[in-house]
Design a binder for these strands. Sequence first.
DNA 1: ATGAAAGCGCTAACAC
DNA 2: GTGTTAGCGCTTTCAT
Lengths: 326, 326
Amino acid sequence: MSVARPTIVDVAARSGVSIATVSRVLSGNRPASEATRARVLAAAEALDYRPSGVARALKLQSTRTIGLVVTDIENPFFPQLVSAIEAEATARGYGLLLCNTTDDEARELAALRLLVEQRVDGIMLASSRAMRRHAGLLRSLGLPVVLVNSRGVAGLPSVDTASRRGARLATDHLIGLGHRRLAHVTAPRSNVAAGERLSGVRDAVRAADVDLHVVEGDGRVEGGARAVASVPANVTGIVCYNDLTAIGVMRGLRSAGRRVPEDVSIIGFDDIEMAAWTDPPLTTVRQPTDAMGRWAVERLLGGGHDDRLHLEPELVTRGSTARASR
Amino acid sequence: MSVARPTIVDVAARSGVSIATVSRVLSGNRPASEATRARVLAAAEALDYRPSGVARALKLQSTRTIGLVVTDIENPFFPQLVSAIEAEATARGYGLLLCNTTDDEARELAALRLLVEQRVDGIMLASSRAMRRHAGLLRSLGLPVVLVNSRGVAGLPSVDTASRRGARLATDHLIGLGHRRLAHVTAPRSNVAAGERLSGVRDAVRAADVDLHVVEGDGRVEGGARAVASVPANVTGIVCYNDLTAIGVMRGLRSAGRRVPEDVSIIGFDDIEMAAWTDPPLTTVRQPTDAMGRWAVERLLGGGHDDRLHLEPELVTRGSTARASR
DNA sequence: ATGAAAGCGCTAACAC
DNA sequence: GTGTTAGCGCTTTCAT
């Protein structure tokens, strides 16, 4: 059995001062004489004293913890984002309470309840789902909320990548390579970003007067692989909702005996790490996850006014796209 | 500006009872008359009252939160594990405080400090690194610790996959397919599992009297790709430390003009989701991450005695391994 | 069945 | 520069 953890009272007793003095010395908030300072520090050290964040939180009305709700931690894009957020949070001395919802509404609500009861200082929602239905709920939570990787709902700050511009970038890249019959493998419309990316693709297609065929995937590898069957045979370039989809599309295409990029060019979105390692390496549109994470934390701890940040995506050209041959 | 969050006092006032009664009604710990019960519930509802986990934690000396320290959340194996752990934790009403250490010792220590000060009820360490040096520290933390995906340090409970047996399984699979000149791409020895898997490979090789060449990777795709250059040309089967390494090896092989599995068979370890989607799909050894996560949480909340669980790995045969042709 | 009050471990007035 | 004390929001004895 372990001994009870020492409290500020123990430190005070051992150093022969009041608990107030201990508090002051350890926080450095107020000056103390060098002698007492040393004694307090020594006592704390000797007892291996760790101030209770719980007690402090109760007093200061701040847990120095932020809640992070993520749609699907198993989609490699999210760990990248989580990593950026975690880094920024810890750097500021904040803890990160993680909830994974697997895109399940009930779990989403349960997560919010948990976070509110744990009294996190703010909540970050990294959901690709439409949050409009929850907007009211989110605003009534009584604490700062920021939407990450998701377009602003009125009244809530948000950061995301300018998806529409990114998709246009991708499509223009294909068009610039001479492709005239394109396909777009999108994600279910419940996904906000999917709509924006589709719009971006349409922007480009319209401007260049090029053919477009739209097929629905599921945002994962499998959906991409399945979608291939519905892509017309004369298509030479496919813009994918994300990298996972693109990987699936490449697999499907290969199974069907078509070569990438010789027969058809493929472009993804996100630039997950695996994108650099597919065969051929995937051309894609990079989302600046680090900047997203940093801004989100900054914004959340800074107060959370209603403003939105649209980060610029960046085209990353690799081997899965090539000049059209027909 | 949002209004101050209602406290138990507000609920008591509104329902005309004492705070003790409110507490009892809401917790259901003690009976109350139907009439008061209804009034309290109504008041709580009307005020949208959320009990403070902080105050409760201070009183009960339990935050209902567990800390999870992860080596590298960006390695797809970990999100899988985190997902399993998170699911089990939330199911039990516990929150998960996540720390990512990027394998950095300083961040690791900072994470532990943070978790102790936040007074988590227990800590789970999912590190592939050797923790022997920290064993003393971990034991002195004064709270339950369980090691996940890492072999037991004396005095600490742990769950992991029987890596040695898994590697033997993998190697035997190759040997059974007629391969007689094998290579193993391992990970740095700081990684405990790497040593065990190497031993497993050696067990199999010794038993079958087969050639083995060992090359060091880095546990990631890049190291696998680089390692290929050091693999003798006559090797026909490669056992890889993990799936990421295997993906790198496949890439490297293909760049060198060798075909998988026609010229050389490749087998990975972990069975990350992407393994099913490589070209060809990767034969691998599956780690039962769900069971690992569940057991770890159970063990942690159950008290954390010093016992270890070795989960059985499972061979998953896909397209990257084939009968040896020479 | 219900209420009064102590106390969990801190911080910050407010004394001196 | 240091000590005393109230109070953060709960749970739980102990009375009644």
